[in-house]
Design a protein around this nucleic acid. Sequence first.
DNA 1: CTTGGAATGTCAACAAGGCTGACTTAAACT
DNA 2: AGTTTAAGTCAGCCTTGTTGACATTCCAAG
Lengths: 170, 170
Amino acid sequence: MADGRPSAAISGENLLFLTDEQLRQGIEAMFFAYRGFTADPDRILTDMAYGRAHHRAIHFINRAPGTTVNNLLNILGVTKQSLNRVLRTLIADGLVESRVGRIDKRERHLYLTDDGRLLEGRLSDAQRARMRAAFRDAGPEAVAGFRQVLEAMMDSEMQRAYTRLKESGT
Amino acid sequence: MADGRPSAAISGENLLFLTDEQLRQGIEAMFFAYRGFTADPDRILTDMAYGRAHHRAIHFINRAPGTTVNNLLNILGVTKQSLNRVLRTLIADGLVESRVGRIDKRERHLYLTDDGRLLEGRLSDAQRARMRAAFRDAGPEAVAGFRQVLEAMMDSEMQRAYTRLKESGT
DNA sequence: CTTGGAATGTCAACAAGGCTGACTTAAACT
DNA sequence: AGTTTAAGTCAGCCTTGTTGACATTCCAAG
């Protein structure tokens, strides 16, 4: 905590990073950054009559192949009707395959087809490129802080979903 | 592009934070965190038949009182038709006031009314509370990193808008 | 075994909020 | 006088959220 910052210490600790002005800047940073975050995939998607919802579905199906619709629902946080519409077009277009569950025939297990994986690659390449540039510009320390703050900002339920995904990867 | 597992130690530097897996975690963190970021204001808004678009307009009018419609358009990155629909309801409901410009009478300058400021306060209190908790949990170093990465992720145009706002405050 | 409830997924219809395009009005600029 | 600019409007489209109604499947209690 011994920092060489301007030392207008409030109540003994430096809490300048918690002023309303700092928080507001954080809020605006979040708003503008999210626009950048989605801009590149959005451009690819509109060329093919898809939207952000399709991207999200494709991303998480790729991340966890064989996931059920219900599972995906919890991760995406939308109604099943909303997801279903997106899924229907993806299946009709041959990007996603839906297999009836072997154990429980009520469930549908979702997989990307070859075409689906191709689109997934295009989308995440674009998104990763921007993230990579931002990470490189900011450096490893900043990236650690970035992830720490984002994780603290999630609802606890999403925190768990995020951690589960994080640990399943690698 | 997506070269699987790139380059653990390129030229003796630790670039582990740039692996595809790390980038993907960053992407997912961004997705889940943004949900949390908007969750609290959204709850307040749906109670009064408003949406996120109204919140954004209110936020930036409060941030820069007297801003013109065109100005707001550039910051929000939507079409004037889209903004107009939102603005019309806010003005009709007496939350926003639109004054004809004194110098240039074509322009409309936008201000929050007392009621508008009241709602703005409720919304940003909710949003700031979450941001404050996240910032406090993560600590000042992390917050600096968070802001650094977000800024690097913006389109350059938005980066300028963000900086301008940042410098106008305080 | 049957039946009723719970879980899962599908279909239909509606609303919010993006978008484009065409147009008007008023003021400012040249 | 003619052009450009700022703002607003109307119409219509698309994506993506919502509810409500419904079909299918599973499972457990009677």
